[in-house]
């Protein structure tokens, strides 16, 4: 698997797209810092970017890479290699290069602007860690979609729909359900609903750092327990790991039963 990872990564690291992705983050970082020079505010703006854009790029890029490397995959399949290592290797190649683009692209400008001397370093590290998780999760979901759909157009469609659903529609439904059932205690429900969507979960994880004062203003005991302690952080990280591992597991399973 490590060999496949190496070659997929090697291939990607030299593709135009990972440069575009890298340069995009680099430019974003510099522009943000140039415009307001305030690390903490830039971190807030970045959060929005990471929550929305990273999943989108992870999804699109994952699907694209999977379909584009179909022939390469077939070449590998004829080699004496285990199937699951072929796909997991490719997956880690893609997810790894995306994550690297993200971390370097944002890390360089922020480091140049004195990140290490600033209090924002923890917020920023959390942001990057969350971004990395989201990349892993959404690339894995994208691979799942692609491996289950031979038709590229369909695959792309589903991938974009998945992103749209998790990034926007889910929250809309969530909000409506909260308002409709506002008479009932909703603490546990809303925490659970948050856990079930990796984007919401990542957002909450960052909120724990950025908007803790607002979150602690709310009365619910469950909320308080969750946000007031490190338990919230730990549960969130555990859930994000689940979100990464489950699609990978399905990917490995699907790959063993698929015809090429």
């Amino acid at each position: 698997m490590l060999k496949i990872l190496k070659y997929s990564y090697y291939d990607l690291i030299r593709s135009r797209w990972s440069y575009v992705y890298f340069l995009f983050y680099l430019a974003l970082g510099f522009v943000l810092l140039f415009l307001n020079n305030d690390l903490s505010k830039a971190v807030i703006t970045l959060m929005n970017v990471i929550i929305v854009l990273v999943p989108l790029i992870g999804t699109i890029f994952g699907v694209m890479y999977f379909y584009n490397s179909k022939e390469f995959t077939e070449l590998l399949l004829a080699q004496p290699l285990k199937r699951s290592s072929i796909f997991l290797g490719q997956y880690f190649g893609v997810a790894g290069s995306l994550t690297l683009s993200l971390i370097l692209g944002l890390g360089i400008p922020f480091t140049l602007y004195g990140l290490f001397k600033s209090n924002a370093i923890w917020d920023f590290s959390l942001l990057l860690a969350t971004g990395a998780f989201l990349t892993l999760i959404f690339t894995a979901l994208a691979f799942n979609i692609a491996i289950s759909n031979e038709n590229r157009i369909k695959g792309f469609g589903y991938a974009v729909l998945l992103w749209l659903f998790l990034a926007v529609v889910y929250d809309g439904l969530f909000l409506m359900s909260l308002i409709v059932f506002e008479e009932y205690p909703l603490d546990s429900y809303s925490l659970l609903a948050t856990m079930l969507n990796p984007i919401d979960l990542s957002r909450t994880l960052i909120l724990l750092k950025l908007d803790i004062s607002a979150l602690l203003g709310y009365t619910g005991a469950v909320f308080k327990q969750f946000f007031g302690t490190d338990a919230g952080l730990m549960v969130s990280v555990a859930m994000l790991s689940m979100w990464t591992v489950l699609p990978l597991w399905r990917l490995a399973y699907k790959s063993k039963h698929k015809d090429f």
Binding site: D171, S190, D200, L215
Partner: peptide, 9 residues
């Protein structure tokens, strides 16, 4: 409870 949707898209 909707506070949990703070800063969502």
């Amino acid at each position: 409870e909707t506070i949990i949707l703070l800063r969502s898209l």
